[in-house]
Simulated scan of single mutants.
Amino acid sequence: MSSIHALIETRLREAFAPERLAVLDESAAHAGHAGHSGSGESHFRVRIVSASFAGRSRVDRHRMINEALKPAFDKGVHALAIEASAPGEAVRW
C-alpha cells in the first residue's frame, strides 16, 4: 500500500468509523494526464459507508471527506472520486 493510499485510509477511518471502506488508487489510468504526479499517487476513488453521513446531502458528504483528506491533497492528490453512503442506503459496490 502506498503512503498516500495509507494516509487516505487512516484519515477516513479516524474521521468516520466506516462500516465499509474501499480506497482505490486509479492513478495508473491517468498517467500522462494533467495533475498526474511523478510519484504515481494522484487519482483516487473512495467508497465509504458511514453513519456520519446519515441525513447529510451529497455535497455535505463530499465536503466532510475533502476536509478530512486535506493532508492527502497537500501531498499531491489531484483528483478524488467519492461514493459516500449512510448505512441502509443503496450502494453500487
Score class of each variant (00 low, 15 high):
residue 32 G to W: 09
residue 27 S to L: 06
residue 32 G to F: 09
residue 69 L to G: 08
residue 21 L to Q: 04
residue 40 G to W: 12
residue 20 R to V: 10
residue 39 S to L: 14
residue 78 H to M: 12
residue 53 F to C: 07
residue 11 R to Y: 00
residue 88 G to D: 14
residue 49 V to R: 04
residue 84 A to N: 09
residue 51 A to T: 06
residue 66 N to S: 08
residue 33 H to Q: 15
residue 39 S to K: 10
residue 16 F to L: 04
residue 6 A to K: 06
residue 79 A to C: 12
residue 72 A to E: 04
residue 70 K to I: 00
residue 72 A to G: 03
residue 71 P to V: 10
residue 1 M to G: 13
residue 11 R to N: 08
residue 29 A to H: 12
residue 12 L to I: 10
residue 44 F to T: 03
residue 90 A to D: 13
residue 80 L to G: 11
residue 71 P to F: 11
residue 8 I to F: 01
residue 6 A to S: 13
residue 33 H to A: 15
residue 29 A to G: 07
residue 43 H to Y: 09
residue 82 I to G: 02
residue 10 T to D: 03
residue 93 W to M: 09
residue 92 R to W: 11
residue 41 E to K: 12
residue 63 R to F: 02
residue 37 S to H: 13
residue 1 M to C: 05
residue 90 A to K: 15
residue 4 I to A: 00
residue 89 E to F: 04
residue 3 S to C: 00
residue 59 V to E: 08
residue 48 I to E: 07
residue 16 F to E: 03
residue 71 P to R: 10
residue 60 D to P: 03
residue 31 A to V: 15
residue 8 I to S: 02
residue 76 G to S: 06
residue 45 R to S: 14
residue 62 H to P: 01
residue 89 E to S: 02
residue 72 A to T: 03
residue 17 A to Y: 05
residue 40 G to Y: 13
residue 41 E to Q: 15
residue 52 S to T: 02
residue 78 H to S: 13
residue 7 L to N: 00
residue 83 E to G: 15
residue 48 I to T: 08
residue 87 P to D: 10
residue 59 V to L: 15
residue 93 W to Q: 12
residue 35 G to W: 12
residue 2 S to A: 00
residue 51 A to Y: 01
residue 27 S to M: 07
residue 73 F to V: 07
residue 17 A to W: 02
residue 41 E to L: 13
residue 54 A to K: 07
residue 51 A to C: 02
residue 38 G to V: 04
residue 20 R to P: 01
residue 30 H to V: 09
residue 75 K to R: 15
residue 17 A to T: 12
residue 43 H to E: 05
residue 23 V to M: 02
residue 31 A to Y: 13
residue 56 R to V: 01
residue 73 F to Y: 13
residue 64 M to Y: 03
residue 13 R to P: 01
residue 70 K to W: 00
residue 36 H to K: 11
residue 46 V to Y: 09
residue 3 S to M: 00
residue 48 I to D: 05
residue 25 D to W: 13
residue 16 F to V: 05
residue 37 S to V: 11
residue 54 A to Q: 09
residue 8 I to T: 02
residue 83 E to S: 15
residue 8 I to W: 01
residue 15 A to N: 05
residue 43 H to L: 09
residue 23 V to P: 04
residue 82 I to Q: 09
residue 65 I to L: 13
residue 45 R to V: 14
residue 46 V to S: 04
residue 11 R to S: 08
residue 79 A to R: 13
residue 79 A to L: 11
residue 54 A to P: 01
residue 53 F to Q: 04
residue 82 I to T: 05
residue 31 A to D: 14
residue 11 R to H: 05
residue 73 F to D: 08
residue 1 M to Y: 05
residue 69 L to P: 04
residue 21 L to T: 06
residue 12 L to P: 03
residue 76 G to N: 06
residue 86 A to K: 10
residue 28 A to T: 06
residue 68 A to H: 06
residue 90 A to E: 14
residue 53 F to N: 07
residue 50 S to K: 07
residue 13 R to L: 02
residue 89 E to W: 04
residue 21 L to R: 08
residue 4 I to S: 00
residue 28 A to V: 08
residue 46 V to K: 07
residue 76 G to F: 05
residue 90 A to M: 12
residue 88 G to W: 14
residue 19 E to Y: 04
residue 16 F to N: 04
residue 47 R to F: 10
residue 20 R to E: 14
residue 18 P to K: 08
residue 48 I to R: 11
residue 81 A to N: 08
residue 63 R to K: 10
residue 72 A to S: 11
residue 27 S to D: 08
